[in-house]
Design a protein around this nucleic acid. Structure first.
Lengths: 196, 196
DNA sequence: GTCTATATGTTGATAGAC
DNA sequence: GTCTATCAACATATAGAC
């Protein structure tokens, strides 16, 4: 049992902040919002995060990404050795999570925090999400006849992420059937293309 | 020659606001920012848009989407009758534009404006972007052997948009080669899948 | 750990002069 | 059309009592 670095109150702050940031984004969440959900005054948050809102956001986002990576890797591993099953498992696991809003994070949140924090988080986000996926595509592409396509694992992993993220952006009217069917349609097209 | 509904000053406001909103998003742009770029005081903006920031944003976004639709349709038309060429033209045209940041707009901006404005804009955004693309995929899928896939035009148009949007989110390290090569890779996979 | 009190800045918005 | 003056509301943040 390792010695806990943080107290329970500290953990509660992180949990509540994570939930709110994930829901509404960095700018739309105020320290008062977070404090209110905790039943404390917003100035008390500075005891836990002396450098204020940005420090809290960075800490929360790091944790969230670590948990994404761990969850993704576990989901992939439990899916067995078939890369298609792994891909399906990864897709469903991602959609199960409280929406990550990658687009908002990269295009909005990242631009209103300091450059150093922004670059650090950006790196963590991409490695946490893309690296586990790249592993799948490395295998999937290994037997491909086209040698250039065999090297596109990283690009395809990014495409996969964009597609999953995009599922949550589509309006209901464009989503025929359940979310599960939609995932299968997306995977089918990613694997076989629109012509086959 | 139709009678101009708005004066030049009014037009300038819209142009500057459009540029800033597109760059930074609704929340991150203040009325003072816009006014400063125009060389006027922010209170003067209320002469042109008495209902304030949200009214300005809605007007600007409507125009932008109209222009997207027109540009997309023209690019597609000029590409000839081959749907693959049309798809390529649409992709390049979209990437040429000042980035639209669809993800940010849908996940961030839309949640901090009024519900009525949000729903109205959402509808306009999707019809403007998806409808021209659906036209391409209707043709592309017409000869497909799989009858269910033949009905997936709307979904595939959404996937296409997500993929294009995603290109701008990927970090440079994940982008091997030029943006043009990247578009070709993405289109190749969308059309033929990762296995062929 | 949380509080009160307070500083300090920013924001969207209104009224009325020119 | 643009200005000045002014506002109320809300933001992040600091200092120090309990």
């Amino acid at each position: 049992m390792e010695q806990p670095t943080h107290t329970e109150a500290h953990e509660r702050v992180i949990i509540v902040a994570d939930q709110l940031f994930a829901e509404r984004g960095y700018q739309a969440v105020t320290l008062r919002d977070i404090a209110q959900h905790l039943g404390i005054r917003h100035t008390s948050l500075y005891y836990h995060f002396p450098r204020g809102k940005e420090e809290l956001f960075v800490e929360v986002t790091k944790r969230r990404m670590q948990s994404y990576r761990a969850g993704l890797e576990q989901a992939i591993q439990q899916a067995g050795s078939d890369w298609m099953a792994q891909l399906r498992a990864a897709a469903f696991w991602l959609l199960e999570q409280p929406t990550m809003h990658l687009g908002r994070m990269l295009q909005s949140d990242m631009h209103v925090i300091s450059d150093e924090a922004s670059e650090q988080l950006r790196r963590i986000v991409f490695t946490s999400l893309l690296q586990p996926l790249e592993g799948i595509f490395r295998v999937a592409l290994a037997t491909n006849a086209d040698p250039t396509k065999r090297q596109r694992g990283a690009t395809i992993a990014g495409m996969f992420l964009s597609l999953i993220e995009g599922i949550e952006n589509l309006p209901p009217s464009y989503v025929a059937g359940s979310k599960q069917e939609l995932v299968d349609t997306v995977l089918d097209i990613l694997i076989n293309g629109i012509r086959n």
